[in-house]
Design a protein around this nucleic acid. Sequence first.
DNA 1: TGAAATAACTTATATTACAAGTTATTCCGG
DNA 2: CCGGAATAACTTGTAATATAAGTTATTTCA
Lengths: 237, 237
Amino acid sequence: MKKKSKSQIVYDHIEELVISGEIKPGERLPSEAKLCDILNVSRVSVRAGIEKLVAIGLVSKKKGGGTYVNKPSSDNYLSVFTPTLLHNTDYLELLEIRRALDSLAVQLCAKNITEAGIRKLAEIVEDMEHITDDGDFFALDKKFHLLISKYSKNRFLHNINLITWDVIQKTLRQNYNKVMNAARIVEHRKIYDAIIHKDSDLAKIFTLRHLEDIIDTFVCEYNQESQYEAIRRQRRR
Amino acid sequence: MKKKSKSQIVYDHIEELVISGEIKPGERLPSEAKLCDILNVSRVSVRAGIEKLVAIGLVSKKKGGGTYVNKPSSDNYLSVFTPTLLHNTDYLELLEIRRALDSLAVQLCAKNITEAGIRKLAEIVEDMEHITDDGDFFALDKKFHLLISKYSKNRFLHNINLITWDVIQKTLRQNYNKVMNAARIVEHRKIYDAIIHKDSDLAKIFTLRHLEDIIDTFVCEYNQESQYEAIRRQRRR
DNA sequence: TGAAATAACTTATATTACAAGTTATTCCGG
DNA sequence: CCGGAATAACTTGTAATATAAGTTATTTCA
């Protein structure tokens, strides 16, 4: 267990304040001096920690005025990855992106995956089928999809996926668990089978269905309409 | 013209060193003390600037050892967006993602765009058709696609797009200009027409073709093979 | 020659001080 | 009592200095 740096303590503390909703977007952080007292570190460390949060776009500083939590609509583009509280509509937006990118990832993965990769993927699928605790599913699901994007050999794709799952883990686990059920596990198996047979088209189809099922379940649960749903309905006409 | 903060001076200076290739991934930055001398600022400011670069994943610090430019393969996921020098293969990876996300964006855009948005889009397309300087094309192309993702009303999608174009602008303009030609302008007009007729399916098709043409041109230019090309060839069999 | 000891260097943190900008309060004329 | 100007209190920005702690290069000595 490596010791956390002082600036990391500050970073984590403020991030937690924002994720938990204790400080909402638009609101002001405690002043640097107060944070020094609370966390028992020097102002140098407080400033270093805040500096990082500024860089990723979670907060903004105003000389003489204080430090404020950015609103999600901030034009700082890195704010995509900031762990602000996400609402259900935000989650749908995220799922729409997953639909587009996961289907690309699985295509590339089926083409590029190695024997070692297949073994790892097999292990995950099997673990998933013998799950006892509901909480474990999240970890396995994340692993499964990240492994696929890793073997897509497209680093940008994989990195975007890492971010996506990081956001899901930090802010959406409650919502997430509600859309989990036995059907998801079968879908993973199907995707896996398509990958090992190097059938990228089939893998893509199963991945699209997988994401569409997740979206459907989520929309049902919350009686909301996704933009994707609207497009699909339009197509049926 | 707002005055740059000291830490921003440091940030920009180091970013420039990396983008220009003066300091390559894996190499060490000048020490904090040296940067103080070079830039004539205090160590506090040097550290604040570097702290931001650490946060976005461009560099990593080793206590006692120095500060190093990260390699693109760094597992710091924000490194996707860091302005390290990108090679041609990296650009192809980026184009593959654009293919997946731009087609989604244009679908949503056709559904959600407002009258004001259409007017803005029209202006861009017309400017594009009356272009005199080649250099202007980049700015208009960027504007066009960012406007589409903006009106997709999916904030994640738009933010990823902002990042993508930022990376292109910072690191890929030379490559980019080579794939530009008159055909691109016609393609934009077609996409625009589909959008104003609210035909999301057609808009998607034209966008896919647009990106595939760009990829083809780029691949021809550099005699490289994109993963996407391989998939397309496979499908033809 | 080789390994341990040492020196030199580098980042991490703390303290103090002041500059410069913002916000809240006080004060005073009407 | 009201309104606005002056002021005080607060907050971030920058600097200088000092020390701790880790890494790297050099020296020393067996």
